[in-house]
Nucleic acid binder design. Structure first.
Lengths: 251, 251
DNA sequence: GTGTGTGAACTTGTTCACAGCG
DNA sequence: CGCTGTGAACAAGTTCACACAC
């Protein structure tokens, strides 16, 4: 389901014509690919590449070059014919489209291995996802500091939210307490939830909810590798976007 | 790109007619949804439900009931008209289709928080993904045991593989060493790689490669939440499969 | 010449609606 | 009568191919 792009909001007076097209619709398939391009572009940026063609970006992202061009043209006319795309500018534009040029506060519920991994993740920090709250019920963990953030009890969430509004909640608790912790997060003002716990959650209609299953990718791999083993035939594994799939959000 | 279903291989003489259709093709969109159904069916099984309708399963998976029926009918005629699907039987069939009824050995490279989280993950154990090797270069970690598996040096991979063939490799190392560790895993016989490191990998054509970016879901969330904040309009967040997306497989 | 931007052709995936089985 | 299984209509997404800007 495509979504309206916000009105001009013209910052970034730029190369082409200061674009950012007006009420364009961005297909969800494109939205799902933007983070992929992002990651590659950032890697190119680090390696000092200043310009990239749709062909090259497509090769790195395992995506047809025409698709890359179409995706990018949906955001605006950012390329230069004959030359390609300016990497730094493109990163900026995609960041803007994804809303990554604003700060998002994140609360992580469940400070086990996964919670810690996420809290320290470069991918979070680099993209303006600021982990501002860590909660866990385990008394031996409460009080511990992870990257300067103190682990507190879930019951403190409302208090925490009072001083720092919480935008996104991440649930990395065991399944049995996932629903309860989701309720607390929502009560504390969280409007988007990312659930790693293997439990279907019940949330109000206006809360964005997405599920992640770390074993889901492995399951898809299993499918294709089994095929390959079964009949060493044309067992090409296609590129599927998945994992994040699952009972998510609303319809 | 759809894939041939293996020939009859008739075990499971069953309710309907002992089906498992012959050379059917399963669309990748369907393959990506099977793990979702799986998870819900397992939850139903635990709660003692023995029969489920496409309507109910669809509601839980946030998927149109017709889509559920079409997906399942691609695997075979597993339902009973007027009654619905037998949950236990369906789980078995999907497990079989996904190749989850055989054992997969998994090697995890990088025993940080994420590596540990995965090694201990219920989702892995429950689906016949057996973690048989853990490697890390950090001397202070080598020798440690996690769920009975000793952490060893990546250079030992060939030796490990000799006693236990490795099917799948999971990379949870820092980005700079991801390529090197991928090479070692492949040398040790791994034919499928799941890469959590933010690095584009170069692997031979016959190795399945998939990328997971834990922040990717958050980025998509950011997109839709930003839209919603910008113009409190029809900001419905669609259900996108993503995260796992990314430079994957071959083309 | 080189590589973008994009209509138009095509492929894949989704939904509808209903026949037919239990 | 309820619910599956599926052809047929529809919608979304992808690829092609080429005009056009640099």
């Amino acid at each position: 389901m495509p979504v309206d792009v916000p009105p001009p909001s013209s910052d970034k007076p730029t190369g082409a014509d200061g674009s950012v097209p007006t009420g364009r619709r961005i297909p969800e398939a494109t939205v799902a690919r933007l983070p992929v391009y992002q990651r590659i572009l950032e890697e190119l940026l680090r390696s000092g590449t200043s310009t990239v063609s749709s062909e090259l970006l497509g090769a790195a992202a395992q995506v047809n070059a025409a698709k890359v061009r179409k995706d990018l043209s949906l955001l605006g006319s950012f390329g230069t014919r004959g030359a390609g795309y300016d990497v730094a500018f493109l990163v900026e534009q995609i960041d803007h489209q994804l809303g990554l040029d604003r700060d998002w506060t994140v609360a992580i519920a469940g400070v086990g291995n996964l919670g810690r991994a996420l809290a320290r993740s470069q991918g979070f920090a680099a993209r303006n996802f600021e982990v501002v709250a860590l909660v866990d019920t385990d008394a031996s963990i409460i009080g511990e500091r992870i990257d300067g953030v103190e682990v507190r009890h879930p019951d403190d969430l409302p208090a925490i939210a009072e001083s720092t509004p919480l935008a996104i909640g991440v649930i990395t608790t065991p399944a049995p307490v996932a629903q309860r912790v989701a309720d607390l997060l929502i009560e504390a003002g969280v409007r988007s939830l990312l659930n790693f716990a293997p439990r279907v959650l019940d949330v109000p209609d206006d809360v964005f909810l997405r599920y992640v299953d770390l074993s889901m990718e492995l399951q898809v791999m299993s499918f294709y590798q089994a095929r390959r083993l079964d009949h060493e035939a044309g067992g090409r594994m296609p590129i599927i976007r998945s994992v994040g799939l699952s009972p998510g959000g609303r319809r």
